[in-house]
Amino acid sequence: MVVLREGMCPGLDAGLLRNLRAADVKTVEDLVSSDTEELARKCSVSYKALLAIRRVLLAQHTAFPVSGADLYEELLSSTAILSTGNPSLDKLLDSGLYTGEITELSGGPGSGKSQVCFGVAVHISYRLKQSVVYIDTTGGLTAGRLLEMLQTETSNTEEQMAALQRIQIFRLFDVYSLLDCLYGLRSGGLQQASVGGGSVKAVIVDSVSAVISPLLGGKHNEGMSLMIQVAGVLKTMAKDFNVAALVTNHVTRSGSGEVQPGLGASWSHIPRTRILLERVEPAAAVSPSGLRSATLIKSSRQPCHIKAEFDLGWWSRSEEGSSRKRKLDETDS
């Protein structure tokens, strides 16, 4: 169910949108299933103009068949793999984040979801020289934190500033603002966000559940519809613009007490890949406090339930710290 919005097709302006809503026509489905002649009369618009809008909306929101061979050729020509910057996480993801797909990181408070997103954004902007759109719905992202991570990558101030310029940040705290932002990006905002010679290759939403979960359950029937709209625009944007979408999700407990990603069964079909992050309790005082366990719980490429451990401090390592980390890895192996 797609909610009608101003400008989603030629002729659908604010005045007509008000009249349609007054006639209890709020979605594309409502409009295309209505009697066009009667609706034109109710909304004081010409039958011909409304018929043209109806045809455009049908073309935009109707699925057309495509052969498997064409789909495979398109996949081969368009998919790119973006390294997260962390070898353990890349191995779990079968080399990294895939463009055209949605990857989800789920975990409880303190599991490191946001820290991983910060690290991925910094790695793509500095190492890969590509632009990133970062949508922060929790208020957890600061320019200071990104700069701190970049300072461990390079001491060159110009390089730090250039990398920061390639990270476009949106702070949005409700699902309606999130939808407006995503629709805007899909309608041309992604090209505008490309700076410094690199195109946008990743869109990060941290967190998608923070703005959706309050609307689910109880009497909030619209919550499910809004969630599906967020999923739909993320999917089409990832595919149409060849970007990797990375989202974070909270966790809940099943009836048996098992930790599982939030947002329910309907959302579970949306991400192509899902990873559960958990804190690893240190066995001794010398163990790194930033150690996290990552479990692959959904994938079309790798066996599910394989695990990896990594240190959240990886993305903030200095050259000296990186050398120490390599020595530790060699000792542990």
Rank of each mutant, 00 (worst) to 15 (best):
P87Y: 05
K307V: 01
D35T: 01
I169T: 05
S83T: 13
K239Q: 08
G68Y: 00
W315V: 07
L246V: 10
L277F: 03
L20R: 06
G188V: 05
W315G: 03
G112W: 02
T103D: 00
H269Q: 13
W267V: 00
R301F: 15
G7Y: 01
T252D: 01
Y134S: 00
A284C: 09
G110Q: 09
W267A: 00
E281I: 11
L172M: 15
S125V: 12
A202F: 00
A23Q: 08
W267Y: 09
V233C: 05
T252G: 00
E153K: 10
H123R: 10
E330H: 04
N19F: 10
S322K: 07
M161R: 05
A49R: 09
N19R: 13
L296W: 02
S33A: 14
G15R: 11
E148W: 11
V280E: 12
A49L: 09
P214L: 15
L82T: 02
S268H: 09
E148A: 09
M237H: 01
G15A: 08
Q302P: 00
L31K: 12
S46H: 08
R324V: 13
G218L: 04
V280S: 03
G85D: 12
L71Q: 03
T62Q: 08
L216V: 06
S83Q: 09
E29L: 11
H220N: 14
V28Q: 07
R317V: 05
A52K: 14
V25N: 11
K219W: 12
P282L: 11
E159M: 07
G255K: 07
P65E: 04
S333F: 14
R145V: 05
A52Y: 06
K325T: 11
M8F: 11
H220G: 13
Y98W: 06
L277N: 07
A69Y: 10
F64K: 15
L97M: 08
E148Q: 15
V200C: 01
N86D: 07
G144W: 12
K201F: 03
G218D: 12
L89T: 05
E158A: 09
L89F: 06
C9F: 07
K219Q: 14
A59F: 04
A210E: 07
R55M: 13
G262E: 10
M149F: 04
A63P: 07
V56Y: 13
A193H: 08
N86S: 11
K129I: 06
T79I: 07
A162I: 08
G107V: 02
G223W: 12
N156M: 09
L246F: 02
L263M: 10
V203K: 02
C304L: 04
R55D: 15
T103Y: 00
S33M: 10
V251F: 01
R272P: 00
G108A: 06
K201R: 09
G223I: 14
A52R: 15
R317A: 15
L50I: 15
V120E: 12
L39H: 08
R18K: 13
L89N: 08
R5D: 03
S207F: 13
S289T: 06
A69D: 05
V203R: 04
S125K: 10
L146T: 13
V259M: 12
K219P: 08
A59N: 13
V28C: 10
A285M: 12
